[in-house]
Amino acid sequence: MIPLSYYLILSGVLFAIGMAGVLLRRNAVAVLLSVEIMLNSANLNLVAFSRYIAPEQASGQMFALFVMAIGAAEVAVGLALILMIYRNLQSVNLDQFNIFKW
């Protein structure tokens, strides 16, 4: 059986990739995708822990299922907002959103 640490390292790497995408990419859709990678890294953690630490309860797997549903809802809202800002500014580049100073 694959040791638990393999899953944790993979999830850590995915989280880092997602975080790098959030910080470095300037396209709003790409940022959204990066966040989804981070979300899935947390999901991987939950499922792996559920299997290895508490196999008698499936609460971690339950959690992962709820997270997937919430992730889908978030993408729906996020894409709607990106579509709206595209209609206003004809761009989805985060650098061009500068009405407010950061």
């Binding site: 959204l32 890294s41 947390a42 959690f63 907002l81 990106i82 959103f97 407010f100």
Partner: peptide, 25 residues
């Protein structure tokens, strides 16, 4: 404002979730 709120909020939620998964683990 909505897009900034959304993207920053999403990242914060994911970080929170990752922290929760570690506590669960």
């Amino acid at each position: 404002a909505a897009l900034k709120y959304f993207l920053l909020g999403l990242v914060a939620s994911v970080i929170l979730l990752y922290g929760m998964s570690l506590v669960y683990g």
